[in-house]
Each structure stands twice: as structure tokens, then as C-alpha cells.
Design a protein around this nucleic acid. Structure first.
Lengths: 206, 206, 206, 206
DNA sequence: GGGTAATCGAGACGGTACGTCGTGTCTTTCC
DNA sequence: GGAAAGACACGACGTACCGTCTCGATTACCC
């Protein structure tokens, strides 16, 4: 079936987008990225692998960044942990995130998105939006903690979330995804500890 | 002077590196980056602008990233603060770093370095070495705090330094260098607070 | 017209070779060779002059020599003589060949081809193929003579053809294309005479 | 001894040419040519192999061609055969010449000289002189035959010699030095036979 | 139900940049 | 002043992709 569909070159299905081609291109892009990393990722390589014409790609994705983003969107997300304490939540979150990046193509893909965003305006905007959304999601962990009274009332959840994901980004971008559980726990503990007294210090410091 | 010196093509000054060429190449690299951004930055363009041969560049800088890093370090003039408390040290450090990235070309340059490192293996290595060095430098702030008894004895200075610089990287890479002083202070406080109790928790957790 | 046609950059005309590009490249190659000689002949220079991309040249001509050979064959307009006797055929052939080399650019071009073949393997192959083809063509003169009974039945036409063209090559390579008709006739006579008795001797020698 | 002399870098021996360097350069040039052919032959490669500085080479040999010619001159020549009949003389000469080119570095060297002569004026002149000298030498074989009455009185020895060596050149330049004895004998026979009747035909043809 | 229009794979096109090699010139240091 | 050493500006090498194009075949939609 898959064979019948993909063995022979896909053809036009009339004056409209062929979903099979779109699918094949996204899959090929993911595979190319997983195998060769950002360095080996080129429209040519994707077209070759997808047995698609370059113009077909350019028709639907105006830039490398657009394709990259679409590929990243296809990646499925893992669930946010809810362990009962914010420290363990953070630790589990970091552990799951790094493992996901390490064990699937997501890591390579996200690295590419970030890299692309440094020179491509569209990618930058998309990444910015995406990151803000993630921070909001991650912030919910903090808000839960706040509701439990684990965290100072005036601590900003998104700033804390930012701190957590910054750490993960940094490990991704410098190829240190094999961070041990112990270090992750240390980081989680620092952040969790730091949040507690937040309010008191704020008053005193101002 | 500059004219007289640079008008005619530089020549070899014997079997050793010509500092004038090195200087011209770094200057040209900076200029090319400033004008065309990361996208327009190529060894060819730098060579053209510096009136240098490509092999001269490749002789001294094995990769695009190595050159970029040199340009970055050449431009960055940056003093590590020593205020007396680790919280203020971190806050001042972040504030100065982000301001430096925001107000000079060095932010754009460092973004390029990071982007480059995502596709080029030698670039990754160069960045890795550089980042480790920076962590060690930043770690000294933490060690000073430790000596003063501000920090739990078994807190790892480089992990803390990593957390601090991760935050800065993340702001750089997502174009949020205009972070307000207040937020920086918050971040500094969280980390500083978190470090205090580190030891106790570690014992309990182990 | 030529202006209108060539002023703007040629484009692809679909997934097939663009004859206009091929033509422009061959013309440019000829011009470059005429102006700079073998020393100044480079693929880069041809591409520049033809306003063609280097890959377009490499796509169709695997080596410098292949391009040179095409230029040579494009320019050489050359009819094999058929005078009725092999001696006069050879004499006329040599005379016409040397005159063609002397009076047009083709001599210089063919010199380049031979020179190129001494260092480039693919060039050597290209020349080898071409030379074998030429020997076969020239050999037809001998075969006609054989049919007329002018030549011993077991004389190998290609060996004879080789002897004839060797003489021409040697004159080309040592810049002695102004060989007088008389000497050419002498050479033709020796070879023609020598062929006659070939068979008898061969028997005796074996 | 050779070790002691060559192991350590040669030094200047004062304000005059160091014969050891000249020798080392010529030997290196020969070796490079033998190993890599004309393609691998470069002043750089020779300098590397001879452990000599490039300027030292340029000081004494103004061009690649000059060095090449010097290398060729160093090759020792084989003796001209004198078998008693011109046909066997020619056959033996061709056989020895091709074997020499095939079995020693001479072949590669001479190919290079010829190639170089196609673009370098100096080399062209030197080759021209050398070839004329060789023709004169080879011509002596013919003159001996003439004295024995084997050859028509008015046959020009150098033209015949030219025909013979042309054949050899052609085989060298097209990489066909493994020509069998039989074919060489055929060629020798044709030329020898052709010379006999030379005079008679000349009269008739004129 | 026949013409039009947009799609598809394919791959050539003019370009730019890659990283390497060789050129011939230069200068310094040592003899 | 010769020689080793090696840096220098230059420019060609052959390859990889870029983004654009034109092609011929293939439907779906609209008159």
C-alpha cells in the first residue's frame, strides 16, 4: 500500500496541492535532518529524498525556515509532569525534554530552527512566538506551585519558566544533552529554592 | 597613514604571520558581518574586503566560526563585576552582558557563532571550548561567594555559571536583550537564594 | 538580433540542455584560447566570458580537454581527399591537414588538447578516443587502396594511418607546419611504396 | 654518507650556488615526475621533496620548463643500433626507444617537456633544438644505409628520421608504449621499403 | 465534455561560496 | 650573498546548493 503509493513517482492530482507530496516532503525533511543534522539539510537533499521537484517545495514553503518550522510542528510533544512538588516537576520536565531531544529527531530539528532564526526574520518571529507559548505552558507548573504555596506570591511564572527552558536550550545548543540526572536535580533544586523566598527579598531589595 | 600602509597589497614579511593581514582580516570580517549579517558573511567576502587571499584566512582560522569567535573576542571588552554579594554580582554581570550585546555589534556576532556551531562541527568545538572557558570565568564569581560563605560548600560553581549564562544566551537568541533591570535582579535573586540551601537539600535528597 | 538574444542572461529551457548555452560556451572557449593561448585557458575564464555558470560547463564537458576537443572539432572543417591513388591521397591529406592547422586557430587548439592530455587522465582518454576515430577515418583511404590492389592485402590500415598522422602531429608539436609540398610528397611516397611489398616481406619475416 | 649529507637540511655554503641543492632538486624533480606524472609535477612538490626552498629553485631555473629540460638532459641515452640492415636498425631503434620511455622515468619526463613546449616559448625552442639534434643522430642510420646502397641516393635522411621518431612520439603522447615487436617491425619494414625506390619515383613524379 | 488552469517530477540554468592547491614574490634568519 | 623556511596575494580548481525557469504529463474544475 505504502509501496503502491510511493513506489512510483507521485503525479499531479489536478490543480490543487497533492497532500501525498506534502507529506513525503515533510517526512524527507525530518529524515534528512535526523541523519545529516543542520549541515546536511538542504532543499536539494530533501527534494532528492522525497522524490519531489524543487519547485514543489518552494511553492509551498517559501524558505528553508518555513519548512523547518513545519517539520518541528509535526513533532509530538510530551506531557508536562505533575509530581506534586515544583522541584520534582522541574527536574522531571528537564529530564523528559532533554531525553526527547536526545532520542528523537526533535533535538536536531529544534537546533536548526534556532540556528535559522538567527538569520531569518520569519523563523525568528515564529521561534519567538513558539518560545513564548512554551514559557506560558511551563509557567503553569509554577502557578500550580504557587497555588500550593510553594512559591512566593509575586514571583513571575514566565520568568521562572524562562530560566528553566534557557538551561535546556543551552544544553541543546552546546551538545550536552547527556546531562546526568543529578545535575538536573541540582538545577531544579536551585530554582525551586530560589523561588520560595522571592517575595521577601523583593521587598527588602527595593 | 592608514592609506599609505594599506593602499598597496600587503606582502609576506618572511616566514611568519603578518600581523597587518590578521588585523585587516578581522576588521573586514567585522565590517562584512555588520553590513550583511550572518547570511552575508562568507570567507570569500572577508577575503575580498581585506584584500587577502583565502588561504591566508584558512591558514589561521580553521573555520568560519573560529574567525567569528576571534572577531567577537576582539570586540568584547567586558569586566567581571565584584560588588561584594553574589546576587549583585550576577545581576550586574547579566546587565552588563546584555547591554554589551545590545549596544555593540558583539550580540549579532555571537548569535552568528552560535548559529554556525549548529551546523559546523569545528564551529561547535570552538564554541564549546569558548563557553567552557566563560563558565570557568563566571564561576569565579560563585567561588568568591563560597569563600564568603554565601553559598553552600558543595554547590558546583560551573553549573551555577551555566545557569546564569544560559539565561543570557536565551535572551540573545530570541531577541529579548532589552530585559529590564528588575527582571534581571529577580533572576539573580532566585539563583543566589537557590544556592544557599543547596548543600542541605543535597544531603537530604541523596 | 544577436544583441537582443544574448544581452540578457540565458535561462533554463526546461529539463534539457540549452543549445544557446552550449554555443555560447564553445564560442567563448574559442575566443579565450585565441586571446590567451593554452596558458590563459581556464574553465573560469570561459564561464566568465560566456556568462555561464561553471557547473553548466562541467555538466556537459567533464574536462578541460573535452571542451577543447569540441572546440577543435567545431572549427575543423576538413574533407578527406579521394584522388585515385593512395600516394596522392596521403600527400593531399597531409597538405590539407597542415594547412588547416597553420591557417586557422585549430592548430593551436589541437596543440592544447595534446598538452592537456599529458597531465589530465580524462583528457588523455578523450584524446585517445578521438585519435582512434581519426585513425579509423584515415584508414579508409588505405582500405580504398587495398580494394584497388595498390596495397598488400595484409597491411593494417590503422597502423599506416597512425604513421601518417604521427608525422603531422610531430610537425604540429614542434612548430614546423610550413613543411613544403615536396617533403610531404616524399613522405607520402615512402609510405605508399612501403605498403606495396608489405605482404611479401611479412611472409618471409614470419 | 648520503644520509649524513641529506638528513639534515642543507645550508648555504656561502655566497655561491650549492651543488648539493641543485643535485637534490634535479633528483627530486625526476622522482616527482616519475611518481605523479606531469599532473603531479609542481615547483612546490619538487621543493617539498628536495627539502629546498622555492626561491632556491626559482633562482636557478626561471621556469618549470627550464627545470624539466635540465632533468631530461640528465637522463642517459641509449646507443644507436647498427645491425647491418636499415630495416633492423629502425626496428631495434624504435624498440629500444619505446622500452626506455616505458621502463624509466624518461618517458614521463619527455612527455612533460613536449607538453610544456606547447605553451612555453623557451621550452619550445629547447625542444626544437633537441629534436633537430636527435633527427641528425638518427639520420646517421639512414646515411649508413645509403652508403651500403640500401636507400635511394636522393632520399633525405632527416626526413626519414623524422618519420621514424614521429611514430615514437605519437605512441608516447597517446600512452601506447606497449606496442608489440611485430608492429614495430611492420613500421620499420614500410619505411625501409619505401626508401628503396625513392629516387625512381621522385623522377617519375616530378 | 472539451478547454483551461494549476499541479506534479524532472532537471538545466546563472550564480555564489566552498575549501584546496599551485603560482611567483617577498622577508627573515642562519651560514 | 646563498639557502631554508614559509607567509603572502592571487586565481583556478571541481563541487554543492541556491532559487528560478521551462518542460511534458496529469487531473479537476468550469463553461
Amino acid at each position: 500500500m505504502t509501496m503502491d503509493e510511493e513506489k512510483k513517482a507521485r503525479r499531479s492530482i489536478g490543480a490543487r496541492r497533492n497532500p501525498a507530496s506534502a507529506e513525503a516532503i515533510l517526512e524527507a525533511a525530518e529524515a534528512v535532518l535526523a541523519e545529516g543534522g543542520h549541515a546536511g539539510f538542504s532543499i536539494e537533499a530533501v527534494a532528492r529524498r522525497a522524490r519531489a521537484g524543487k519547485p514543489t517545495i518552494y511553492r509551498w514553503w517559501p524558505s528553508k525556515a518555513a519548512l523547518l518550522l513545519d517539520v518541528y510542528q509535526r513533532q509530538k510533544r510530551f506531557a508536562y509532569p505533575d509530581t506534586g512538588t515544583v522541584e520534582e516537576d522541574i527536574s522531571a520536565f528537564l529530564s523528559a525534554l532533554l531525553a526527547n531531544w536526545r532520542d528523537t529527531a526533535s533535538g536536531a530539528i529544534f537546533r536548526s530552527v534556532i540556528a535559522e532564526a538567527q538569520s531569518d526574520e520569519t523563523a525568528a518571529k515564529a521561534l519567538s512566538t513558539y518560545a513564548a507559548d512554551r514559557r506560558a505552558q511551563t509557567g503553569k507548573m509554577i502557578e500550580r506551585a504557587k497555588a500550593r504555596g510553594e512559591v512566593a506570591a509575586d514571583a513571575d511564572p514566565t520568568t521562572i519558566a524562562d530560566l528553566v527552558s534557557s538551561f535546556a536550550w543551552s544544553r541543546l545548543l552546546t551538545g550536552r544533552l547527556d546531562t546526568g540526572e543529578k545535575e538536573l536535580k541540582t538545577v531544579a533544586r536551585i530554582i525551586a529554592q530560589g523561588m520560595k523566598e522571592q517575595g521577601i527579598k523583593e521587598k527588602g531589595g527595593a
